[in-house]
Design a protein around this nucleic acid. Structure first.
Lengths: 242, 242
DNA sequence: CGCGGGTTTGAATGAGTTCAATCACGGTGG
DNA sequence: CCACCGTGATTGAACTCATTCAAACCCGCG
């Protein structure tokens, strides 16, 4: 569970037993091909998922084929923490690339959390961060221009990768097609292509088949009005109901 | 705490002690004038809030004055359940109309939840529903047309009022200006006015200074692709970490 | 009466979409 | 080795939905 480890260590002291407890959890490693369903719309998931490799998307299809991606899930992300409540999911989760993920029964997961307050704290932060990301997504698609959306998303994804890998880099590993970007940003594929070209021509980013290199983070952040604080985690202790 | 009572009863059996416990909570009733701040951006709130009367909005201002409303908070809604974590808020909460609200110290609130599993369940559902509303907002502003956005929002707000008042009605009490609607839907005021006129002319709704009457719910729901399931609560029991 | 906030209407503009064609590239089969 | 295919990216031109700017309107209130 390397990706998750790195993530969780942001929130708990590394000397606790909590992380070992995580490793003991019974889980099976599963694989999904690009496009495959991980959680179907209307299904009730009794599992917590942890992405180990690859990208997944949480999305919803409208009747006429329009699609909106709610958020991206990267290695180290875990999801459906909340809906261990037998609630039916109102959206689907699909693999965006080839994905390997761990599936943990929510009962076991709850047990681990209950026995390890440090774990509870950590996952509490994970849930809060996910909420922040959703809110930021609303602002992005609601009030930002195409250029701003693209830039803002790149900066968010880059920061999230840094958090998980621990490797402060200007390269964003972006294993998805422009049509996924379009569905995430509420734009057409064509316009994503054009907007990306603009960012390229202006010298903000450099594109390659594997991802995007951020050439001028300063100006890109200013353009996108990006403030990474919503992603940062402080190692603060909280009291969770026990 | 009438509004909250009605809300909470959706999720717990009415014969439990839980609701009494709520009433015992020390809270002060406060008032805010339209536009006043309830929680400032960057502030860390140590309180849980319950709206008693009036509407509040969770919103974020961009540098150049653009504004995005993340969601509306109606009587019976409670918020900042999650961020009792000393996390700094990345957005502000403001009164949209005259608002009276209860402010409960998060410590007391946690205590009540810990002692009453039924309450924990109920607020768990509240948090889940808030998440659903945020996700629905992303889809609304990301992939729907102006007409669809407006119709969809009206139907959501109407349903939410019904949940709190228990009164199945076609009238939506809408105490806010079109400019707030615009900032919520990611549109300009002018276009909201025009779009609303279209809905009016087509006989879907009737407008009045106090709110909106839904004349043809069938066709309006179809137009907006509205499915109220994301708002419904089943009275299912869950196990919360204890 | 006159001011001010909110709504409505018109005309011009603009950002993003749609449709359609072309290109680039990796894989596959002959 | 090369022709062929399919997916994704790019480009151009026409179009549309929504914005912007500006003026008029409505109405409650001092």
């Amino acid at each position: 569970m390397n990706a998750l480890y790195h993530r969780i260590r942001q929130y708990v002291d590394s000397d606790t037993l909590a992380i070992d407890k995580l490793a003991e959890l019974d889980h099976r490693l599963e694989n999904r091909m690009p496009g495959e369903t991980i959680v179907a719309e209307g299904e009730r998931a009794d599992f917590v998922f942890v992405i180990e490799r690859g990208w997944a998307v949480r999305n919803r299809l409208l009747d006429d084929g329009r699609r909106q991606i709610l958020n991206f899930m990267l290695p180290g992300d875990c999801f459906d923490l909340m809906s261990l409540t037998q609630a039916k999911s109102d959206h689907a989760v699909n693999a965006a690339t080839h994905v390997s993920l761990r599936r943990i029964s929510s009962k076991d997961f709850m047990g681990a959390i209950a026995s390890q307050p440090a774990l509870a704290t950590a996952f509490w932060w994970v849930a809060i961060q996910e909420d922040s990301i959703l809110r930021e997504q609303i602002i992005r698609v609601g009030r930002r221009s195409a250029t701003e959306r693209l830039a803002h998303l790149f900066l968010e994804l880059n920061r999230r990768q840094i958090i998980v890998t621990g490797d402060e880099t200007d390269f964003l590993d972006l294993p998805i097609s422009q049509s996924l970007l379009a569905d995430a940003l509420g734009l057409s594929v064509v316009h994503v292509s054009r907007t990306l070209a603009k960012l390229r021509n202006k010298g903000f980013v450099k594109t390659s088949p594997f991802g995007i290199e951020i050439l001028d983070r300063e100006r890109l952040s200013a353009l996108a009005d990006f403030d990474s604080r919503y992603l940062r985690a402080t190692k603060l202790r909280i009291s969770v109901p026990e």
